[in-house]
Simulated assay, not measured.
Amino acid sequence: MSDARTDGTPTTPGRTRVLLADDQALLRMGFRLVLEAEDDLEVVGEAGDGLEAVQLTAQLRPDVVLMDVRMPGLNGIEATERVVASGSATRVLILTTFDLDEYAFAALRAGASGFMLKAARPAELVSAIRAVATGDAVVSPRVTRRMLEMFSDALPAAGQPVPAPHPARALLAQLTAREAEVLGAVAEGLSNNEIALRLYLSEATVKTHVGRILAKLGVRDRVQAVVLAYETGLVGR
């Protein structure tokens, strides 16, 4: 099932190394053709199921895993959880045919750095991989809106008891007012450039704020920061 580069062939420095995980060989071939047409991307291996994806991630240490959701044995969500739990620096971009919110939420909670549909155009896929590799988030505006709706719906109605504060609220208290403002904008799905324009900051300053936010919250990337922002009620109230 695998087509991993394990023969000692050196990879090209400066390229983003990608592992393809999908149970359909023809789709993997298509993805490979698209990605290897780009000078800065390199496919270093292929996995036909979730368990193989986890094993090859540990072995090959790719920058990004392009992970299908529905695979035999270990599915893509569980595979993502294992990759993240291992402490790997590899980032996971979920790619699925099924435009269902529960897949998006499960993938993001599992630690995925992005969620895209297989119907995405090749240019969108390439752009998403590059973004994820640099620590950015890839979550469609539709998914962001649904996250806002879901967590808003979960808030207690008038007269109902207010639940205990989320344990991560103490972490949010460490953020400065500006950092909280930046996190709110990130949770809206805005890019660093869009945040810079809104807050009248340089893009470099926004990147610095985002880096400090991730460190203070103890999360690995922007997506996890967004999930935390919704779960704790920082946004959506």
Rank of each mutant, 00 (worst) to 15 (best):
V210L: 05
R5G: 01
L35I: 03
E231K: 15
H166T: 11
G218R: 06
E181T: 14
A173K: 09
V18K: 15
Q224E: 15
G76N: 04
T144Q: 02
G8W: 08
A119N: 01
R17V: 13
E179F: 04
N193W: 02
G114Y: 08
V227H: 10
E231L: 12
T6C: 08
F115V: 03
T205F: 04
Y200M: 12
H166P: 10
T9Y: 07
R198P: 02
R130N: 03
T80P: 05
I129E: 02
F98T: 08
V210P: 07
E203F: 07
A128R: 08
G73S: 01
S140N: 05
L183W: 00
S113W: 02
P165W: 01
V219F: 10
Y230N: 08
T96S: 13
R32A: 10
L51N: 03
G14A: 13
G211H: 03
H209L: 08
V126C: 05
V84Y: 08
E36V: 09
R237H: 11
A131C: 05
E78W: 14
E46W: 12
N193Y: 06
T6P: 02
S113L: 00
T80D: 13
S127W: 00
T144S: 14
A120H: 07
A110W: 12
A177H: 11
T144L: 12
R82N: 01
T176S: 15
D153S: 06
R15V: 05
T9P: 03
V65I: 14
D68P: 01
R130P: 11
F31M: 11
S191V: 12
E42Y: 10
S202D: 12
D40S: 12
R220Q: 10
K216Q: 04
R222Y: 00
I213G: 13
N193F: 10
L108W: 15
F31I: 04
T232L: 09
S127C: 00
D49N: 13
T90V: 04
R82D: 10
V44T: 11
L190W: 04
A157Y: 07
L201D: 05
A131Q: 02
D23R: 02
L234W: 09
S127D: 14
K118D: 08
E181P: 04
S127V: 06
T96G: 06
A133K: 03
L190D: 03
L148V: 00
T9F: 03
G30E: 00
Q174M: 08
S2W: 02
T96E: 14
T97F: 09
V34S: 03
E42F: 05
E42C: 03
V139F: 13
V206W: 02
A25F: 10
E181A: 07
V54L: 09
M147I: 15
V139W: 14
P156W: 09
L197Q: 15
A85G: 08
Q59S: 14
Q59R: 13
L74Y: 00
G45C: 00
L66G: 01
L95A: 15
